[in-house]
Amino acid sequence: MKTIINGLKDENPVFALGLGLCPALAVTTKFENAYIMGLCVLFILLFSSLITSLFRKIIPPSIQMPTFIVIIATFVTILEMFLSTYLKDLYYILNVYIALIVVNCIVLGRCISFYSKNDVLTSLKDAVGIGLGFMVSLMFIAFFREILGSNTLTIMDATSSITGYKAVYKILPNMKIFPLSLFATPAGAFITIGILMGLFNRFIKGGKHGSN
């Protein structure tokens, strides 16, 4: 429980550490894409933490980095094959960003700094915490961007081929200024995440961050 809160708050990968920013900006135009991306990263984190912590004594330090990259790339390939078979539409949208999990700073950084030094159980716990932290941050960003940018909240649309449900809601009443398409564009992505990070520093981290 403590590790999960740690992943959400003090070591929140997106808001506190500033890692894994590419997907955080790119796929958060829709709520659904965001949580699927979060789940993908969680999956990769779980399996690569398992493997790296299992083999941490066998892998020589000099070739640590290439080994980790290959381990992560293996699981990313598995994930790509899965998505391209079962969730074609979504795979088409997420596209390069799934493959780019290989070089995602969260997974690789965590492998080098944490999983290669700790035993299996601690690593797995940490992976769950960091993965959930990442997922929640993405959902948080996407929540604001989708509602403000296109006045919808997509919970299930492309995934409906598996679940059989479709859930797209309209949230805001009709107004003159909303939907403001700025939030759906790249510029809106940068500005939204900047403001959310500022609020995170101010209210959740309690001003600790400001000192450095």
Partner: peptide
């Protein structure tokens, strides 16, 4: 800069403004 915006947040907002300038040029 306000304390809570130091570091990443202000960089993000600046980058956002850069995109806005660029998107005027593209005509999005």
């Amino acid at each position: 800069i306000p304390k809570c915006l130091k570091g990443y947040p202000i960089s993000f907002i600046t980058a956002g403004l850069m995109v806005l300038v660029l998107s005027r040029y593209i005509g999005v």
